[in-house]
């Protein structure tokens, strides 16, 4: 038994080729308008950020500066341990603590400010 579609396409007011014409025309117009806006605002964007390329070139020209490597685990740096101990003592107001280990932060640990972290948390809170 052959299956027949129970609905008349477009209630008889539009055939499939006309409908496809509307779809293709419509989608093309939407794309054209928005692509035109992409072109306009890409151009304007370049106009408003002309210094960007120059800045990059300047940076390239500068001789590479050797930066002292990040402090390694200060196992034997007793002056650093003393300074941190003194600071903690000043902050806590008593000497009732022991510093067991001082080690550098792990790679990739968040270093943004508390305000940034708070802003991100606020904007990305779950639903």
């Amino acid at each position: 038994m052959a299956f027949s579609w129970p609905f008349e396409f477009g209630a008889g007011e539009m055939n499939i080729s006309d409908a496809l014409g509307v779809v293709i025309t419509g989608f093309t117009v939407v794309f054209l308008v928005l692509v035109l806006l992409v072109v306009v605002f890409s151009f304007l964007g370049k106009f408003f950020t002309p210094a960007k390329k120059g800045e990059k070139k300047e940076i390239k020209k500068e001789a590479p500066v050797k930066v002292a490597s990040a402090p390694s685990a200060p196992k034997n740096d007793y002056s650093l341990i003393a300074a941190i101990t003194a600071a903690l003592h000043e902050y806590l107001g008593n000497g009732n603590f022991v510093i067991k280990k001082i080690r550098p932060a792990k790679k990739g640990t968040k270093t943004s400010s508390a305000w940034n972290r708070s802003g991100k948390a606020d904007n990305t809170r779950p639903f």
Binding site: A11, A19, F27
Partner: peptide, 18 residues
């Protein structure tokens, strides 16, 4: 906006007027 035009075709196929 693809969904707009797909649903338009789907509604026509379900016998709706344009």
């Amino acid at each position: 906006q693809l969904g707009i035009f797909i649903a338009f075709l789907g509604a026509l196929a379900l016998g709706m007027t344009p």
